[in-house]
Structures are given as C-alpha cells and as structure tokens.
Simulated scan of single mutants.
Amino acid sequence: MSGTSEARWDGGRDRDTAGRARNARPRDGLGRPLPYGADGVERQPEGVVRSPEETVAEAQTLLEAGKPFHAHEVFEDAWKSGPEDERALWRGLAQLAVGLTHAARGNTTGGARLLRRGAGAAEEWSSRTGRERPYGMELAELSSWARELASVVEREGKAISAQACAPRLRGRRV
C-alpha cells in the first residue's frame, strides 16, 4: 500500500469510540471549523432524544444565541429519532436553520434556497397533517419569516446576523 493510501486510512483522522470519522476541531457559532487549539463554542451532542417540546425550546435558545448551525443539529436529532409521520416537519425545520446558517456565513444563494425549501416543507407538512401549530410552533409565521428573509439575503447579497434574524418558533417577537 502506498503512503498516501495509508494516510487516508490511518492519517490521524478524528474518530469516535465506534471508529466513525468525527471532526474534533473546535467550531465557531456558525459551525465553521476553527484551527485546533482555538477557542470555539461548545458543540451540540449528537443523537440526543428529546421530547418535541424540549427540541423546540433547545432550538429556540440556540437560534436566539446566533447558533443556527447548532439548532439544525437539534432538529436533526428530532428528525432521526422522532415518529415517522413527523420526520418531514423536523427535516424542514432543520433546513430553515441551515438556511439561516448559510445566509449568516455569506452564502446568500444557498441560504435563500434552503430557507425556501424549509418553508415549503413546513407548509406541506402542515397542509398534509392539518396541524398548523404543532408543539406551539406557528408554521405559517415561520414559513413567512423564511421566505421574507430569503428575499432579503438575495437582494442584499451579503451575510446577515444570525442572531438579529433569528425566528421565533412559537410566534412573533414582542
């Protein structure tokens, strides 16, 4: 085996206890990797099973703190561990959080696309199930927020503040 192939398999990659590849580099609030040894934000643990109410509360806290990448991971846990009939809801919410992440990183095209995709998924799930306010979330307002923000990031063409633009999952800010 050549040295290159060996490096790919045994090149000091970060791995978890089960041997799966993991990136142990610290990350900033938008999930971007930082150099080893840099101060980063605490990462969201993966695979946590929460109640839907806990999921919404944890994601809201992260969104308000300007950490939509981390909120996406919370929604992703719900998507992967929740009941089959709710997976499209949680996947759509994860897309909204990733869209906000991309928009805050300055990827306005990708951010707008994901915001609209997440808005559409939330609307579709609501119309299919007849549930407009699952777990107290205002899906119509959330979809409207996402579409409006998508238009803003496309029009302005620059990074936005994730914290200033964070949605309220359970209704408008007062």
Rank of each mutant, 00 (worst) to 15 (best):
G31T: 06
S51F: 06
R27P: 03
L63Q: 00
H102D: 12
R8N: 09
L139F: 01
A166L: 01
A112H: 00
T17M: 12
E84P: 03
A164S: 13
E73V: 02
L30A: 00
K80V: 06
E124K: 13
R155L: 10
A103R: 00
T129N: 08
E64S: 13
V41P: 04
G110E: 09
K80I: 03
W9A: 15
A57Q: 07
D39Q: 10
A112E: 04
R128I: 04
T55S: 12
E64Y: 04
V174R: 13
E46T: 11
E6Q: 15
A159L: 00
P35K: 12
A88M: 12
G31W: 00
W90G: 03
K80M: 14
R25Q: 15
P26C: 09
D10V: 07
G120H: 01
E123I: 01
T109F: 14
A104K: 05
V56G: 08
A112K: 00
T109E: 14
G40F: 03
C165I: 04
R172A: 14
S161Q: 15
W9K: 12
G12W: 03
A65F: 07
V48I: 13
A103W: 03
Q95L: 14
T108H: 08
Q44R: 10
Q60K: 06
A94T: 08
R15G: 02
Y36P: 14
L93F: 02
D39L: 10
G118H: 00
D14E: 14
L139V: 06
G3Y: 05
M137D: 04
D85K: 12
P134R: 08
G40H: 00
G111W: 03
G37W: 07
G118A: 04
L139E: 06
H72T: 03
